[in-house]
Amino acid sequence: MDIWQLHSQGALHWEQWDEQFALYQVASGETHFLNAFGAAILKQLIAAPQALDALCTHLATEFDCMPDAELCAQVSALLTRFDELGLIQRHDD
C-alpha cells in the first residue's frame, strides 16, 4: 500500500487568508497557492504519513462528506499533483 508523506519535513511556510493558502517550500524555492481542501491534505500529511484510505477518512470528517469513491478520486488526483510538484512523495510501507 502506498504511504504518502511530505517531501521535506518542516520546511514549509504557510500564509492563510480565509480559505486560501500560500505555501513556500524551502527546499525547492517554490510558492504554491492552495484552497482549503488541498491545504487540508498537506496538513494531514504533516501530522503523519498516511495511505489514501486513511486520508480520505480524515478529510471526509473534516469536510463533513462521505468517504466515497468520488472523494478518493479527488484526493488521489491531488496527491499525484502534489507529487509532481515535489511537495510529497510515496513509498511502500
Binding site: E15, W17, Q20, F21, A22, F33
Partner: peptide, 8 residues
C-alpha cells in the same frame, strides 16, 4: 482585492 490574489 482578496489578499491571496494580491499576494500572487
Amino acid at each position: 482585492i482578496a489578499k491571496e490574489r494580491a499576494f500572487m
